[in-house]
Design a protein around this nucleic acid. Sequence first.
RNA 1: GUGGGCGUAGCUCAGUUGGUUAGAGCGCCAGGUUGUGGUCCUGGAGGUCGCGGGUUCGACCCCCGUCGCUCACCCCA
Length: 427
Amino acid sequence: MSEPSQFQAPVGTHDVLAPESAQWEGLVATFAHYAHLYGFSLVITPVFEDVGVFHRGIGEQSDVARKEMYVFKDRGERLYALRPEGTAPVVRAFVQHQPTTPFKAWYFTPAFRYERPQAGRYRQHHQLGVEVLGTGDPAVDVEVITLAQRFYEALGLTRFRLLINSMGHLECRGAYVELLRSHLEAHAEELCDEHQKTWRTNPLRVLDCKNAACVAVTAKGPMLIDHLCEDCRTHFSAVREGLSRLGVANELNPRLVRGFDYYTRTTFEFVSDALEGAQNAIGGGGRYDGLVEQLGGKPTSGIGFGSGVERLLIAREAEGITTPLLARQLDVFVVDTTHEDVATLLLDRLRAAGLASDRAYDQRSMKAQMKVADKSGARLALLVGPQELAAGEVTIRDLRSADFGQTQQRVSQEDVVSTIVQLLRMK
RNA sequence: GUGGGCGUAGCUCAGUUGGUUAGAGCGCCAGGUUGUGGUCCUGGAGGUCGCGGGUUCGACCCCCGUCGCUCACCCCA
């Protein structure tokens, strides 16, 4: 393999430039707004952690831990992993700092998984999410799920569904897994090739298999939802009832088994019907009542969800939603042909007054600068040439109108900012 | 990890059965208008045809390898 003559973004990663980056900015701002409305505060944790955080967090047997983590040793021989998901690091931080509960945090973070990229799947993708630690109240399950629902609605999404299931708590799930395992054992030869090998170590995964053979086997077998203990059943119906009361439609999907081992009780996934193929999950999450203990803390309930930024943007596009998530507009564009760089001073004053302003550089011709002004999308152009300079004035030009005889005016340099503010207010 | 499709200007793409100096549209720059953008006209810059090797008198075109992009499986956001 030879050295690349030109560098490019690593496989499965991508750069986000304007104008697309405005969508990202708007998306994150919208989420931050909703998180705030629901009483969440921002949490920022490192993008890399001791591998143990993830091994113990998401489970040694999960696909992500087994084969998808970016693991590396630093110069001090410490073994780290780039975060493959957002929950485990937040829980680690919770255990470390022991904040008062309930601890409600939201995050926006890149996540890394070493897998082959395809539509809607990357090696570095980005997630928005929330976590609540310190309460097992089903009202929190409802709150977290509703936050996701309202956020998606705010993005303009309509063609998505909420799938929900209960994984039970550690004991009733453990009992069920044994039940399932013996069922699978009896029908092991009927399973698909993949699960013939793995059903013993990770029996729950078989429930999620789309292969007809596996579906046939599990259809005859026990479903976890039918084997929940009294408490888990009560919790689950409280959650579903709470959602219904808020008008949040939800479908029970007893096969919904999410990829991380830490989930207990409520698990859910939002799928977009606008997205083709397997990459249709726009968000998902659930309760993880044993995770804090797994990471060395006291027994503490927790629940959260994460949502993929790239998936959400693709889903919006697939639904044909064209309204921008962030509409940014430049107020003023300064065209300076004096060769004395009056622009620098003018811009400083405009910006100090809170006006978004830009300029052309390199002392280009007026025509060239006007072209740039036009493309900038600014509403007004500020023209300063030798004439204006001599008179101590500037010309204000409305870039939205065709004839400049009518819509152009000269004002003194002292009045520039106030005149512009007034003009912009009129529009 | 497995398999399919594709790599020609900044972008979207043409390129005849392998045959001279590789094209278009858009974008960019300049001029038409020595103080005025969006339309129009004219001109210009810009390409080791992903990279390496092979076949051939001759390769963008054929063959092999490689890298990358893309789609699917698996799994997930």
